[in-house]
Amino acid sequence: MEKSKNLEKFLGLVSDEKSGLLEKIQWRQANEAWRERSGKIALKILRKLRDNKSKDQFPSSQKELATLLKISPQQVNKIVKGSENLTIETICKIENVLNIHVFEYEMV
């Protein structure tokens, strides 16, 4: 069907720039299982930092947490966004420095 002049003008305005949305959606869907757990960890960290801040306790920011974990603030930021596939070692360090339980452990 022939396009209207209005639509043609609109399509002429559309840039060549590509969106990365499809790749991001596909990545999220492919990594859904561990992302769910990573997200729960991220939320526990964020709530603990906020709670510490309200009580003037250390650490109360991502930067302070990075110092304690001996990693960069950028790495901490990836963790709190919930998109990091964490190692068990990192999870244990987080639990220790923040005094939180991330997972419930079962004795087998």
Binding site: V14, S15, E17, S19, G20, L21, K24, I25, R28, G39, A42, L43, L46, R47, R50, N77, V80, K81, G82, S83
Partner: peptide, 27 residues
């Protein structure tokens, strides 16, 4: 299609989906 504003790095649709999957943003 989606608008992309000058002050943003990504277009609106992509930015929104990034935010809605970002625990830091949501918290």
């Amino acid at each position: 299609y989606s608008f992309k504003y000058d002050e943003q790095e990504t277009n609106e649709l992509e930015r929104l989906f990034d935010d809605w999957n970002d625990f830091e943003f949501l918290e």
